[in-house]
Nucleic acid binder design. Structure first.
Length: 121
RNA sequence: CCAGGGGGCUGGGCAGCCGCGUUGUCGUGAUCUCACCCGGGACAUGCAGCGAGGAAAGUCCGGGCUCCACGAAACGAGGGUGGCGGGUAACGCCCGCCGGACGCGAGUCCAGGGAAAGUGCCACAGAGAGUAUACCGCCGAUGGAGGGAGACCUCACAGGCAAGGGUGAAAGGGUGCGGUAAAAGCGCACCGGGGCGGUGGCGACAUCGCUCGCACGGCAAACCCCACCCGGAGCAAGGCCAAAUAGGGGUGCCGCGUCUUCGGACAGGUGCGUUUCGCACCGAGGCAUCCGGGUUGGCUGCUCGAGCUGCGGGGCAAUCCGCGGCCCAGAUGAAUGGCUGCCCUUGCGAGGCAGGUGCCCCGAGCGAUCGGUGGCAUACCGUUUGCAAGACAGAACCCGGCUUACAGGCCCCCUGGCACU
């Protein structure tokens, strides 16, 4: 039973940004292989979304989503990062759940939007 | 009942399923580890306890704590505070009181020391703005000119005045009477103000008496003066452990010794051994500065504290004292949650609906009125049902304040008005 762990350093978040990218109305899912670290997740909600109360609530709801979905549908040995979007604030929970399942499936099949940060280094 | 003033409290409730953080003389373990057992530690899991706010916010004051600096201290610089008394660890906070301004009142507001130490400023308007002034105006007693027999009249030249008009935020005390040619603290009364004294009060101050004809406009959130207070930086403070870097390069300054047959020898430096001394290595580098490279993990600080609460007592109060009880977040990409149901509050909509209310109908009664499986209406009270909404806002070392944000609800005291008894 691989336990879910979180990613927490800035470098890991930046690395995830170069992986697969699937955008949904409420959030953007990033997925990237992490070289045998198991399933890990991270959440990013920027100041643009709202004040501390709004951001914290969004993180908690995302965390609840990920804990429910990842053990079954998550990509093994990948880092999963959810980025909050404006429309995800107080979005219907069932919709979010469906969108996450959809996004994970797309990611599993290797389909995603092109990485945002194009060509660097 | 209407309008208003002051103060305090609260900040949705209950339940179910699935989760998170932390604590435990707690239980479990074919797990890992110290070191094989015992035992300890780690990890997982079960159980039990606890788990955001009144502002956790802004980071504006005051402290605790930590490190740094410092001979006590004084003076100076810089910053702050500013009626008086009290509370406090302390404060720029709080309470009470004083003074002023506003309000019919309950009450509210005040950066509220000094303008008689000095400097400075007072825009515009206005004649004049702090050495007062004279635009319009008033007078013209006195002197002058003219007239008249004279009383006196005319002129407004000398001159007198600052009452009235006008300007302004402010015009060098105010009102009234007397006085005068017209005026003026010129005189008087009252009010205001200065000085001296008495009384009351811890005090700010109040009050009374005498006295002075009035001198002292405003601004100190202008400089300034006076009194009092203040060392600096902050939990990314500070402490411990682990890991990593392995000694690279540039520039500047100083130095690079003596002998030599150029192989070395001596002097010198470093390390080791207990030492005279021996062995090994170095024999050109040293210092300063800049660049480059590496680490930016864990534990601790870290939550029991100027703590919360009940009762009793002192005090008008802020608050203090005594006794008893309680343990109440410690996260770190940052726990305290996700979903659902019922209830509560508010708003919007729907159904006349077994209630109320109004009208009608029928019946009874002389009548007030009463009765009805009766009809209609219902905006109001109520009821059923559907939908929506439930504020401001998330601890980050900890306290005491201030300020700002905030849906709704509850309680207490007081004022003015209306009505009733």
């Amino acid at each position: 039973m691989s336990t879910l762990s979180t990613i927490r350093t800035r470098a890991e978040f930046l690395a995830a940004n170069r992986g697969l990218r699937v955008a949904r109305p409420g959030f953007v899912l990033l997925a990237r292989p992490n070289g045998g670290q198991g399933k890990r997740y991270g959440i990013t909600v920027t100041r643009k979304i709202g004040n501390a109360v709004v951001r914290n609530r969004m993180k908690r709801r995302f965390r609840a989503l990920l804990r429910a979905a990842l053990p079954e549908k998550g990509l093994p040995d990948h880092d999963h990062v959810l980025i909050g979007r404006d429309r995800g604030v107080e979005r219907n929970f069932a919709s979010l759940r469906a969108e996450l399942a959809e996004a994970l499936e797309l990611a599993a099949r290797g389909k995603g939007d092109p990485p945002r940060r194009r060509r660097r280094r």
